Every structure is written in structure tokens, then in C-alpha cells.
Amino acid sequence: MFGLTFDKLLLIGVIAVFVLGPERLPYYAAQLGRLVRSLKEMADGAKDRLRDEMGPEFDEVDWKKLDPRQYDPRRIIREALTDAPEPPVIKPPTHKRPVESAAERRRQLADSGTPAPFDAEAT
């Protein structure tokens, strides 16, 4: 429940004894018990009201299927991307340009005497 282990609950109890003191601790423990009991009654009331309003279909609903913790965003994105329509086919240009390597381009620039391209805003 909320990631609380027995060790953490014991530590919270010890801190409560020091902060509240032994005189006020029983009163606040009783208040906490009443709060938990009223929250449980409210949850049960909401469940009963939902069952009354939905009728017999309430018992047929698979509640585990609607649990948001079961959803994996990576799986959802993967499924969405695989179900996407096929992208349009882009035809390559009909004219062919000669392929030159970066080394050839550097040699051509060095031979022509033009300075290398420079971007003043580049980091």
C-alpha cells in the first residue's frame, strides 16, 4: 500500500510519538482510524452505487483490462507506428549526378585556391 513497508510504518510511528507526545497520540490514532474507516465506507458506497446504476453489466466488465498500470507507452507507440499507412513512394531523380567523396571535394577546393566554407554562427 503506497510503498509503505513495516519498517517505514514503524519509523512514522516513532516520529509521531515524539512529535505528538504520549498524551495526544491516542486521540490522533483514533482520528486516523475513523478517517480510514470513513474512506473505506465512501469507496464501498461508490462501488455499490455504480453497481446499481450499471445493472448486471457491472459484474461482466473486465476491470483488470482497464487498469492504467498495464499500459506500456513503448508498446502503444510501436503498435501505432506499425499500423500506420504506408508512406508515399518518392521516385529518385532521373538525372544522375557524379558521386564525389569529401576528400575529392577538399582537394578540388585546395587546388582552386578558394577558401573552405565557413559558418560564423557555428559553434
Rank of each mutant, 00 (worst) to 15 (best):
G3E: 13
T5Y: 00
F6Q: 12
F6M: 06
D7K: 06
L10K: 11
L11C: 04
G13T: 06
V14S: 04
A16K: 01
A16C: 05
F18D: 14
F18R: 12
L20D: 13
L20V: 01
G21C: 02
P22D: 02
P22F: 07
P22E: 08
E23G: 08
R24G: 01
L25I: 02
L25C: 05
Y27L: 12
Y27T: 13
Y27R: 15
A30I: 03
A30P: 05
Q31C: 07
L32I: 00
R34T: 04
L35V: 05
L35Y: 11
R37E: 06
L39I: 03
L39R: 12
K40N: 04
E41L: 10
D44V: 00
G45E: 08
D48E: 10
D48V: 11
D48N: 13
R49V: 00
L50P: 00
L50W: 02
D52M: 03
D52S: 08
E53D: 09
M54Q: 10
M54W: 15
G55M: 10
P56R: 09
D59L: 08
V61C: 00
W63E: 01
W63V: 03
K65T: 14
L66S: 09
D67Q: 07
D67S: 13
D67H: 07
P68F: 07
P68G: 09
R69A: 14
R69Y: 06
Q70R: 15
Q70D: 09
Y71R: 11
Y71V: 14
Y71M: 13
D72T: 04
P73T: 02
R74V: 07
R75W: 12
I76G: 02
I76P: 01
I77E: 15
I77A: 15
E79Y: 14
A80V: 03
L81C: 04
D83Y: 12
D83E: 14
D83I: 06
P85F: 00
E86K: 06
E86D: 07
P87W: 03
P88W: 02
V89R: 07
V89A: 08
K91N: 08
K91Q: 15
K91C: 10
K96M: 09
R97E: 13
R97K: 13
P98Q: 07
V99I: 06
A103E: 11
A103N: 09
R107V: 10
R107Y: 13
D111Y: 05
S112N: 12
G113P: 02
G113N: 00
A116E: 12
D119L: 01
A120S: 11
E121I: 00
E121K: 15
T123C: 03
